[in-house]
Write a protein that binds this DNA or RNA. Structure first.
Lengths: 232, 232
DNA sequence: TGTACATCAGTGAACGCGCGTTCACTGATGTAC
DNA sequence: TGTACATCAGTGAACGCGCGTTCACTGATGTAC
């Protein structure tokens, strides 16, 4: 919503500097943006993607338009739309893991790591500027290089989760069989939930979140019992 | 396989009727395909998507070209590329569920439902003409309507799985807590695995498959024990 | 069996559009003297 | 402090291209008489 209205504004902002130089004194010379940062281009891309489109469907001209620069200026910053895309994925993964890790650190003190993490994750869906939805989408679509970039981020996530899980189990004097697989499965389920939940209204989100927590509990409980029940 | 080779034939068939009317007497008049079916268009789309591209990125002209008809002829069959896409998703889901259901039915007799299902699923990745990869991809990307179409198919899948799970547990005289969530989680994990595995060589696939089976066992085992371990 | 006619899946040509990319440019900013 | 110069992020114009869609068409097939 914001973006859809922001876009025309940006466009006219550019035109304004032609037609109406009165106000735009800060931008000194005619029709020229002073300078633009990579971050502004990332933001422009995120705005455009919204909850629907995939990076692959972004056009260079769209992004440039949204950022308020001429199409050819794009090349000053990236060789390609793909180059932007991959850096954007990395950046999104970093932002996300930082937030979730902090949530888990806090949660450990309260012993409710599952609930806290899932809830933070869902809250994050709204709060962040689209970083999460980006990862969710590009992990399953897009070019091989996109997938690799996303997988790298998920692996970080999974690894951090695994360490936290092991720590908690140690505190509780129980032990997980195949903790790496538990972490992997949880990662998959949580990101899946995120992908599903992203279009839903808040009340339905809560419901999906509850279900996900039960699934996670099953995984943990199953992992604790799996040595006893050594079914082939 | 059959289709990939059938496609070029179609294309050249059209050109042949221009350049080399000698052989193509069956196609009576110059440069005209007799008639084309919806299924041929579906197949053309599947060929084009391959393991990488998403439906959304298909152009009408691409599909028409692949199918060997003029671009405007497309409109005789679908109002839109989107209309084709959604019908294609439904069709793919149906094909897939049929195969997996049969696999499970067989597996029940051998008591190895997990292993059989996962293995069939993976084998199917190669065997089918792209139906599976289609579902995997479009579930996470694409327009809302694509997502809905995929979700519908996954729900069918999940429901059938749940029924089978309940039946098996009854035979084994044990019981699952929240069988619907177990089915849901398994569905998610399996389809996730499929998405990941689709780019991998055969040997690595096996490994991912093994991991997935362990995850599924954790879920089942966890579900059986969850009543005892009634952690909040 | 033959003739007239309707139907409808196919056709080529044309349209306007947004795209990615190139070109030679401009002018603000920083550096050397 | 002032002057000369290099750098480099910005620019508008232009290109060729593939796209979706429209148009009036054609001719094979089926139906009515």
């Amino acid at each position: 919503m914001n973006q859809t209205s922001a876009l025309p504004q940006n466009t006219t902002l550019l035109q304004d500097s032609f037609h109406d130089d009165l106000e735009k004194v800060s931008v000194r010379t005619v029709g020229r943006k002073a300078t633009i940062t990579k971050d502004e281009l990332f933001q422009a891309a995120l705005n455009l993607i919204g909850p629907q489109k995939s990076i692959a469907s972004l056009s260079l001209r769209e992004v440039a338009r949204e950022a308020g620069i001429a199409p050819n200026s794009f090349y000053r910053h990236f060789k390609d739309i793909d180059e932007l895309a991959i850096e954007l994925i990395d950046r999104s993964g970093l932002v996300l893991r930082k937030i979730l890790h902090e949530a888990r650190i806090k949660a450990i003190k309260h012993g409710s790591i599952i609930r806290s993490s899932v809830e933070v994750f869902i809250k994050q869906l709204d709060a962040d500027e689209g970083n999460l939805s980006l990862l969710l989408r590009e992990g399953y679509t897009g070019s091989t290089s996109y997938k690799l970039a996303v997988e790298k981020q998920l692996n970080y996530f999974q690894q951090e989760l695994q360490e936290d899980l092991i720590r908690i189990e140690r505190i509780n004097h129980s032990k997980l069989v195949h903790p790496e697989l538990v972490a992997k499965a949880i990662t998959q389920l949580v990101f899946n939930m995120g992908a599903k939940v992203i279009d839903l209204p808040t009340d339905e989100r809560k419901q999906v979140a509850e279900q996900t927590m039960i699934m996670i509990r099953m995984l943990l409980e199953g992992s604790r019992h799996l040595d006893e029940a050594q079914i082939h």
